[in-house]
Design a protein around this nucleic acid. Sequence first.
DNA 1: TGCAGTGTTGCTTC
DNA 2: CGAAGCAACACTGC
Length: 287
Amino acid sequence: MPELPEVQTIVDDLNKKVHDYKVAGFWTDWKKAIKLDLGRFKKGIIGKRIVGVDRRGKNILAHLDNGSIMHIHLKMTGHLLVKSKKSKIKSYFKEKVNQYIHHIWYLEKDKKKITMEFSDLRKFGKIRLLDEKGLKEDKELGSLGIEPLSNEFTLKGFKKILELKRKKTIRDILMDQGLIAGIGNIYASEILFEAGILPSRKAEDLTNDEKKKIHEKIRAVLGKAIRLRGTSDSDYRDTDGAPGGFQKVLKVYNREKEPCQRRACKGVVKREKIKQRSAFFCEGCQI
DNA sequence: TGCAGTGTTGCTTC
DNA sequence: CGAAGCAACACTGC
């Protein structure tokens, strides 16, 4: 399940792999994922060059040379794989990812031909096409909150969010895309563990020191996860089909009943359903 | 065998 | 307005 670090890894790789490539063709067997008429979508992308890729929260934005933007959301099980004749498909990659490819972009630069393939087991992923104006006015992207790794995400700004949503739990706030963009279940769990704060704590009950700690850990955990190329706890893969590395250093997420990894803590990792979703935390050292 | 669980987000309902 | 529940899917695990 790609969250900010996974999407950032994909974006960085795409900038290396598909930059300046022209869309020569597009194939799909799951039209439902494309949020406009297929003919219009194809017409809008074919013949256009990809001039850059970036992201907003968990959303991938591929900019084309006519100013329009392909907006891709991988949702829970989406992968973007870039393949050339030369690229070696690793064995762990064949197991799963390949059989769920529902969309293929055929890309060309000079004589080089590659593909970008969207694998999506559960078919929740979606693809949109926006023009420059549409991007600015877009309701969906426009409603996203602050980028937690940007310079604008100051402690002061974070405190303001907590003040605004004082009745909500810190976990809900971290995962609310309209407040802070890009954090999902995995990183919310890990951030709160590192900060030593229980997910059920209400924003209004946090001390200044605790707020500062959480703010610090948001940036530290996301930063470290990007350096490790994301978390492949279940099925995330990068554009080579390779897993990330952060799952090896997860402290609480999906580690129910394991002893807490913090030195001197005799606690055990708990899993609790909070609003239909599992929260992972250590009873011993998160307060 | 069968059914709950899984996670992201938008839509519906109250 | 906000919160809660559910649907969009398909596979895993108990």
